[in-house]
């Protein structure tokens, strides 16, 4: 399963404005819910998990990312949502919750069979490890650009 196949076009927000990490999670979660991918309490559960087990990832460059997700029981059909933000919002570092991470790139993962879909997370990790790809996603202004970038990467790998 490729990331480009799971990334829901309806759940891509580009150059979005959000006041907080909570707001981003609510927006993306609501888009996934509207498409019937997640249960009604998905957002609540994701926020609860984020509070105790945050998902902020410092990338060491201009942009940092977060990958909010939750246990599979809240997912109805697998999907990924994505947001790029004009201004950073604060997530907490995954291994050091005391550290604030200003995040502008968010991948929300709604996976129901993580063992089978692990390659999706691997693909997200791979693209986060490429500053060029991160810059490309941050520069994207249309969903088509995002999907073209991802399918291009998948074809090359």
């Amino acid at each position: 399963m490729n990331l480009s196949q799971l990334l829901l076009p309806e759940a891509i927000l580009l150059q979005d404005h959000a006041g907080s990490s909570t707001e981003v999670i609510e927006k993306l979660g609501e888009l996934l819910r509207q498409k019937g991918c997640v249960k009604d309490d998905f957002v609540e559960a994701t926020l609860r998990r984020e509070a105790t087990m945050p998902t902020g990832l410092p990338l060491g460059g201009e942009y940092n990312a977060a990958i909010p997700h939750v246990d599979l029981e809240y997912v109805l059909s697998p999907a990924v949502g994505m947001a790029t933000l004009r201004e950073p919002v604060v997530f907490r570092n995954m291994v050091d919750p005391d550290e604030e991470v200003p995040v502008q790139l968010v991948f929300m993962l709604a996976l129901d069979r993580p063992k089978a879909q692990i390659e999706v997370l691997q693909q997200v990790a791979n693209l986060l490890q490429s500053p060029d790809v991160v810059a490309g996603l941050m520069a994207a202004r249309t969903k088509e650009e995002v999907l073209a970038l991802l399918t291009g990467l998948e074809a090359a790998s």
Partner: peptide, 8 residues
Amino acid sequence: GLPFLTGV
């Protein structure tokens, strides 16, 4: 293990 997710 964060470096395996971020590359940093």
